[in-house]
């Protein structure tokens, strides 16, 4: 009998736990569904969660990140539970949730839904896409300038750079094509080596492949391969050449050997959405394009390398960035335009 009372009391205490805070902010709480890989990945999930926490702090909204080992197949159940449980904003970082989200969103008109890296329909669904091709363009332009300057330590005479993608897929080739286009904008005759590691979690393979590229005359290799890329950065350090990081600021993983990182500011996007939501301006039904103009993609601060890169090169990169924002340069987007003639 006593145990039963305790159980009921306990349940009641937890059930009411959320509501006082939510009422204080007068906005229903927000949920962030963590993608495969989980928190602690040092990349996509962690970056998004940082933006989530920043957004909550700024607005005073209550919110929680949610992890699942089986996030692919439980997605629909998790999302419905969030809406049934009184959450007003549900952001999913898992790509595979796009399909079910589009289907279930009409059942939950009072909840706002956000999906990343794809475009989904629905009055209460906002789609977030990143212009990774724009950021990669700048990385390519910087690499093409640096590879031609033998006065920089670790740079050879060959105008050769490389890029290693995790898989051959449009989502990855979007980076690669932007990178090539940026490099060719500086030097039309530059040779860009392209390879795929067929994995996102194999640093040893990344290291081998990067070493092979360095042996073939490349001195800068752009990694678009997640965890496999850790090996690419290690190879750059071991061989005294350069890697370019991706998604998060990876410059300090091998200080001085990571030329720059092409950062995807999913934190900026998530924070921006929460602020809009709190203000009652949720962009339902819209596609939010986070590019250079929105600070959604950017090159890193280059803390460890900016002193050895001639200022003129960085100015050129800034000029190209301004031109892209102004619409004077069109960067090819594989995800919406398909494959260009120069990259099949």
């Amino acid at each position: 009998m006593k145990l039963r009372k305790m159980m009921i009391g306990g349940a009641a205490a937890i059930m009411t736990g959320l509501s006082p805070v939510a009422m204080a902010a007068d906005v229903a709480p927000a949920a962030l569904i963590i993608a495969q890989g989980g928190l602690g990945d040092g990349s996509w999930n962690d970056t998004a969660n940082a933006g989530f926490e920043a957004g909550l702090k700024k607005t005073g909204i209550e919110g929680r990140p949610v992890e699942s080992k089986d996030v692919a197949s439980q997605g629909e159940e998790i999302m419905r539970r969030a809406a049934d449980g009184g959450f007003g904003l549900v952001i999913s970082l898992e790509w595979i949730h796009g399909e079910p989200m589009e289907k279930l969103a009409p059942d939950y008109k009072d909840t706002d839904w956000v999906i990343m890296n794809q475009t989904r329909k629905g009055d209460n669904v906002a789609s977030v896409v990143f212009a990774e091709h724009e950021g990669s363009y700048l990385a390519g332009a910087l690499a093409a300038q640096v590879t031609a300057d033998t006065s920089i330590k670790g740079i050879n005479e060959d105008a050769v750079i490389g890029v290693i993608g995790g898989v051959k897929a449009p989502g990855i080739d979007k980076f690669i094509v932007g990178f090539i286009q940026g490099a060719e904008a500086i030097n039309p005759d530059i040779k860009v080596l392209v390879a795929y590691s067929d994995s996102f979690g194999d640093p040893a393979k990344g290291q081998q492949m990067a070493k092979a590229m360095f042996d073939d005359g490349a001195d800068i290799v752009y990694q678009v391969a997640g965890g496999t890329g850790i090996g690419i950065i290690e190879a750059a350090k071991a061989e005294g050449h350069y890697a370019i990081g991706v998604d998060t600021d990876q410059d300090s993983m091998a200080p001085g050997n990571v030329l720059t990182s092409m950062i995807k500011r999913v934190d900026v996007a998530v924070e921006d959405i929460i602020v809009n939501y709190a203000d009652g301006k949720f962009p339902g039904g819209e596609v939010m394009d986070f590019g250079l103009a929105q600070n959604g993609v950017a090159l890193s601060d280059m803390t460890h390398t900016k002193d050895m890169i001639p200022a003129a090169y960085l100015e050129k990169v800034d000029a190209l960035k301004a031109d892209i924002i102004a619409g004077k340069i069109d960067v090819w987007d594989v995800s919406t335009q398909g494959y260009p003639d120069f990259f099949k």
Binding site: E67, R81, G85
Partner: peptide
Amino acid sequence: ASAGTTVQFFSDIP
């Protein structure tokens, strides 16, 4: 598997 995930909506249990 199912409760372990959704319980995170209503508590700070990782």
